[in-house]
Computed example of a mutant assay.
Amino acid sequence: MKRIPFLMVLLLSIVSLSSCDKCDGEKPRARIINNGTDDASVQIKTSGGSTENLNNVPTGSTSDFRGYDAGLITFTVTVDKVEYVESVQMSECYEYDITIDPNNNISTTPRDRND
């Protein structure tokens, strides 16, 4: 009988902690951070067939985020007329930085928006 109040408090604590997420099933999103040698563009193809584009991001700048459906995503990044292709599994509530370094090397960095 003494355990019931304790269990109730414990249950309420767990529920309140799990409901503090900043993101609730939102689409993933990506942006370009262009430190490369020329303007950069990215085509984002989803496994569902839709396409999003971030075009002509100047060197030394960062684009706004663009959202898309979760799933297997193929990025086609173009810098200085050269294409780079990378496929990544994307989940809801994640955002991705597509970073182009001064040598035009491309990396993607995922970040959970609930952290």
Rank of each mutant, 00 (worst) to 15 (best):
Pro5Trp: 07
Val57Ile: 15
Ser18Asp: 08
Glu95Trp: 12
Ser61Pro: 00
Asn105Phe: 04
Ser91Cys: 00
Ser50Phe: 02
Ile32Gln: 00
Asn34Met: 12
Leu17Asp: 00
Pro102Val: 11
Asp39Met: 07
Leu72Pro: 01
Ser107Met: 11
Ser47Tyr: 01
Asn104Ser: 02
Pro110Val: 10
Ser61Arg: 10
Thr37Val: 09
Thr74Lys: 13
Ser19Glu: 05
Thr74Asp: 04
Ser107Val: 15
Val57Met: 08
Val9Met: 03
Asn105Arg: 12
Gly67Cys: 02
Pro5Val: 07
Asp101Met: 05
Leu11Cys: 15
Lys81Pro: 02
Ala70Lys: 15
Thr74Met: 09
Leu54Arg: 11
Arg66Gln: 13
Gln43Tyr: 04
Ser50Met: 08
Thr109Gln: 13
Arg31Lys: 11
Ser61Thr: 14
Thr76Glu: 00
Ser50Val: 07
Asn56Asp: 14
Val77Leu: 15
Gly67Lys: 14
Phe65Glu: 10
Asp101Phe: 04
Val88Ala: 06
Ser18Phe: 14
Val79Trp: 03
Pro5Gln: 01
Asn35Met: 05
Val85Asp: 00
Gly71Glu: 02
Arg29Pro: 06
Asp24Phe: 12
Glu92Leu: 09
Leu72Glu: 10
Ile32Phe: 02
Ala40Cys: 08
Ser18Cys: 15
Leu54Ser: 07
Asn53Lys: 13
Leu10Gly: 11
Lys27Arg: 13
Met90Ser: 13
Asn35Ser: 09
Cys20Arg: 14
Arg66Ser: 11
Leu7Val: 09
Ile44Ala: 08
Lys81Arg: 13
Val77Arg: 01
Ile100Leu: 09
Cys20Glu: 03
Ser13Lys: 02
Arg66Asp: 05
Arg66Trp: 01
Gly60Val: 07
Glu52Cys: 02
Val77Ser: 01
Met8Leu: 13
Gly49Leu: 08
Asn56Tyr: 12
Asp101Glu: 01
Phe65His: 07
Thr99Lys: 13
Gly25Ser: 11
Asp39Ile: 11
Leu17His: 11
Ser63Arg: 05
Val77Phe: 01
Phe65Met: 09
Asn103Ser: 14
Leu17Lys: 03
Val57Ser: 00
Ser107Thr: 13
Gly60Arg: 06
Lys22Leu: 04
Arg111Gly: 05
Asp101Asn: 13
Glu52Arg: 14
Ile73Lys: 02
Leu17Ala: 14
Arg111Lys: 13
Gly67Glu: 15
Pro102His: 08
Lys27Ser: 07
Lys22Cys: 03
Arg29Gln: 11
Pro28Thr: 05
Asn34Cys: 08
Asp69Leu: 12
Asp101His: 02
Ile73Asp: 03
Thr51Cys: 06
Ser107Gly: 09
Arg31Glu: 06
Asn34Lys: 07
Asn104Thr: 06
Gly25Lys: 11
Thr74Asn: 05
Thr37Asp: 00
Thr109Met: 09
Thr99Asp: 08
Glu86Met: 15
Lys22Ala: 10
Glu92Pro: 00
Gly71Asn: 09
Tyr96Lys: 01
Ser50Leu: 02
Tyr96Ala: 04
Cys20Gly: 11
Ser87Phe: 07
Ser91Asn: 00
Pro5Glu: 06
Asn34Tyr: 05
Leu7Met: 09
Asn105Glu: 14
Lys22Thr: 05
Gly60Lys: 04
Ser13Asp: 02
Phe6Asn: 08
Ile100His: 08
Asn35Tyr: 10
Gln43Phe: 03
Ile98Cys: 10
Thr51Tyr: 07
Gly67Gln: 15
Val42Ile: 12
Arg29Gly: 09
Leu11Ile: 14
Thr109Arg: 11
Pro110Cys: 03
Met8Val: 09
Gln89Asp: 15
